[in-house]
Each structure stands twice: as C-alpha cells, then as structure tokens.
C-alpha cells in the first residue's frame, strides 16, 4: 500500500462519489455544476496516469467548454424544471441499476483479465519518431501516423457546426449567434475580459507551439483561444460575426483544405497521401497545425455559441 496507491484510491473514490452525486441529485443546475467538478477531477486522474496531453485536453475541453455549454443550457432550461416531473417507477430504476451493474461487472472482469505484457505500439512509434521530425510522440501519432483521423476530426467538428447552424430559424439565417449574457460594459467582467485575453492568447499559442516536442498541441491551444474569444464576447466587448461572412467561412474551411492539399502533395514528394518527404516533416506538420488553428478556434467557439439568433446589424 504505497502512498501513491493511497492517493489513487482516494482520487478514484472522490470521482465515483462526484459522478454518483451528479446522477442522483434532483436539481439539474446542481447536476451540471457537479459534472464540471467531475471533469476537473478527471484531469487529476489523467495526471496520475502520466498522460499529460490528455490531461490538458480534458481540462480544456471536458471541464471547460463542455461545462460552459451545459451551464448555459441549464440556466435557460431552469424554468422547465417543474414541468417534467414523471420520474420512472421503482421497478424501472432497479432494472436499470441491475443492467448497468451487469455491464460494469463484465467490464471489470475484462479489465482484470487484460494480458500482462500489455501489447503496445510504443516501441514502433518511438522507432519511427525520428522520421516525423516531431519530439512529442502523441503529436507524431496525431499528425503523421494516423493523420487521416485528425483530418476527419476537424471535419466532424465542422459538420457538427453545420448541424447546429441548421437549427436556426429561417428568418435568422445569415445572422449572428449570441451568448445570453447581461453584462454591463463597465462591470468587473469587462475589466476581467480586458486583462485575461492577452495572457490567455500567449498561453494558448505557447501550448500550441510546444506541442511539437512536449505535451500540448493544437486542440488544447485552440480551446484556450476559443475560451478567450468567448470571454470577450461574453463580457459584451465584441460580438460574433454573421454566419454568412465570407472570411469566417474561408477561415473555417482553410484548415482541412490545407491539410488535404499537403496530404495530396505527399503523393509527389513522398509516394503516398499524407506522407511527408524526409527532412520536411516538421515544417509541413507545423504548416498544417497553423492552418488548423483558426478553424478549430472559430468552430469550437461557435459550437458553444449555438445557432444564429439575430440578424446582423444592417
């Protein structure tokens, strides 16, 4: 029973307690707050599992943006809390509990039976790390070995954005999304929104930049920059561009298109799509990441903002 194990057990119990509370509590708003806390605790677990990249992503995406999204939704839906009262009966709840417990038991059995010399692709990845010219193996996997997944990743985010925008009313199409805030421009939030973003942008770019060799990367950096943009708009100092804006659409589309262009260029220079010529891997990867940054920042922020709600000021 080393000290580390004790900490792990404590953390695990804390997380399970928080998850149970989030599910069981009656009031939805409290449940959302519980979920945000749960997300941040989960970041600690990733640190304990020595996976810093994932910890950063979880903190930024799981705790931060998802939390903002859910808190916004919970605040607006608080009034409908009373209407939906019919909680399923005892029998349904017990049956659901039994089924969930069976699934958990099966999974636990599988976890305990995982093979001991755990099969891993780490040696293979480490061997070929040199040719990708990137120090951080996770970034190497993301942008070299399995670059198709990352491209599809960006396309998933864009399609989700199209889906969210398709939910606008026809009369608001081409208008601007809105954050439901009632901040006054002289208040403390405006002051906060003037001080934090510059530092935030530096931190975001820094995380994006060191992603090549140390834990970090474009997703985490883009999330931080998106958060800063949301903060500024939330404080009322700026507002979202209209959906039909040309530069907005070009920037949104630029990331994947540049990625594909470099990918197809790979046929000529390195004999396969998404292959990098020897020696030029790092600059190309950086070019792709730089192209993807604006796409991700805009897309993630607009996903939180939701469908366009009002016509652009003529």
């Amino acid at each position: 029973m080393t000290l580390a194990l004790a900490v792990d057990i404590g953390l695990a119990l804390l997380i399970l307690a928080m998850a149970a509370w989030t599910i069981a509590v009656r009031d939805t708003f409290a449940s959302v707050i519980g979920f945000v806390t749960y997300g941040l605790l989960l970041t600690l677990v990733w640190v304990r599992l020595a996976l810093p990249d994932v910890a950063l992503t979880e903190a930024a995406m799981g705790g931060g943006l998802t939390g903002a999204l859910l808190i916004g939704a919970a605040a607006r839906l608080r009034r409908t809390e009373a209407t939906v009262r019919e909680r399923p009966g005892v029998f349904t709840r017990t049956l659901a509990a039994v089924l969930s417990a069976t699934v958990t038991a099966a999974l636990s059995f599988c976890v305990l039976n995982l093979p001991d010399p755990a099969p891993t692709l780490a040696p293979g990845a480490a061997a070929k790390l040199g040719s990708t010219g990137v120090g951080n193996p996770v970034t190497a996997v993301l942008l070299a070995y399995r670059s198709m997944d990352t491209l599809l990743e960006a396309i998933v985010v864009l399609i989700a954005l199209f889906g969210v925008w398709s939910l606008a009313h026809d009369r608001f199409w081409g208008g601007c999304p809105q954050l439901r805030t009632h901040a006054d421009s002289e208040g403390i939030l405006a002051y906060f929104a003037r001080i934090l973003p510059p530092i935030g942008i530096i931190v975001g770019v820094y995380i994006f930049w060191i992603g090549a060799d140390f834990p970090g990367g474009k997703f985490q950096g883009a999330t931080i920059l998106a958060a800063m943009w949301l903060l500024v708009i939330g404080a009322g100092l700026a507002h979202f561009p209209p959906v039909s804006q040309a530069w907005l659409r070009i920037l949104l589309v630029a990331g994947p298109l540049v990625f594909m262009a470099i990918g197809f260029a790979g046929i000529v220079t390195a004999g396969a799509v998404f292959a990098y010529p020897d020696g030029f891997a790092k600059p190309l990867i950086l070019a792709i990441e730089i192209a993807l940054m604006p796409t991700l920042v805009l897309a993630l922020a607009l996903l939180v903002a939701g469908a366009p709600q009002r016509m652009p000021p003529q």
Binding site: T92, L95, V103
Partner: peptide, 13 residues
C-alpha cells in the same frame, strides 16, 4: 426511452 435503452443493454448482456 427507458424501455428501449434497457432493451439495448439486456440485448448486449
């Protein structure tokens, strides 16, 4: 909804 989701889990088991 509850019936369908429980049916899914029951089917998996």
């Amino acid at each position: 909804w509850p019936v369908a989701t429980m049916m899914l889990l029951a089917l998996a088991v």
